[in-house]
Every structure is written in C-alpha cells, then in structure tokens.
Amino acid sequence: MERLLTVEEVADFLGVPVNTLYQWRHKGTGPLAFRVGRFLRHDAAEVRQWLTDHAAVSHGLG
C-alpha cells in the first residue's frame, strides 16, 4: 500500500506553490485530496491521474 502524500509533497512534485493547491481545491479543479483529521492527504495514483488528465486537456486531447 502506498502512503498518502502531504500537500507539500504534491506541490513539490507538481512544481507549484502550496497555496496553488489550496486554491485549486477551493475551485474544485485540483487533484483529489482527503481530509485525515485536520490534514489534507493525496493518493499518489490520483495525483498522477489528475496530471495525465490535466495535460491531455491543456493540449487539446481531452
């Protein structure tokens, strides 16, 4: 089982500021995140799928 990623880890992976992830979450456009207690956590597979889907849309493939 893969461990869940922190917001900081996902931001680093995507190369965006942490605040951008929070803005995307607020708008409902970012990768799916789960609340675990008071923390947000991301499934690595979901982040990779979101990135693949997002790249396809931004290149006119989706």
Results as ranks from 00 to 15, higher is better:
residue 45 A to S: 07
residue 62 G to D: 01
residue 56 A to I: 00
residue 31 P to W: 04
residue 35 R to Q: 15
residue 55 A to E: 10
residue 30 G to M: 09
residue 46 E to Q: 13
residue 53 D to T: 06
residue 43 D to R: 15
residue 2 E to R: 05
residue 36 V to K: 12
residue 9 E to A: 11
residue 13 F to M: 14
residue 15 G to L: 10
residue 46 E to D: 15
residue 57 V to I: 11
residue 10 V to C: 03
residue 13 F to D: 09
residue 59 H to G: 04
residue 33 A to F: 07
residue 47 V to R: 00
residue 35 R to G: 10
residue 41 R to E: 12
residue 21 L to F: 12
residue 8 E to Y: 07
residue 31 P to F: 03
residue 30 G to R: 13
residue 42 H to L: 04
residue 29 T to V: 05
residue 11 A to C: 07
residue 34 F to N: 09
residue 23 Q to R: 15
residue 45 A to T: 03
residue 53 D to M: 09
residue 6 T to H: 09
residue 55 A to M: 12
residue 50 W to P: 10
residue 26 H to K: 14
residue 33 A to G: 13
residue 35 R to D: 05
residue 28 G to N: 13
residue 36 V to I: 15
residue 57 V to G: 01
residue 6 T to K: 14
residue 26 H to V: 06
residue 34 F to I: 13
residue 8 E to F: 04
residue 42 H to G: 08
residue 9 E to T: 06
residue 28 G to V: 12
residue 59 H to W: 08
residue 11 A to Y: 05
residue 59 H to K: 07
residue 15 G to K: 07
residue 25 R to C: 06
residue 45 A to E: 14
residue 60 G to C: 00
residue 55 A to W: 02
residue 42 H to P: 00
residue 31 P to V: 06
residue 58 S to Y: 14
residue 39 F to R: 15
residue 35 R to T: 12
residue 21 L to V: 08
residue 45 A to N: 04
residue 40 L to Q: 09
residue 28 G to E: 14
residue 49 Q to L: 13
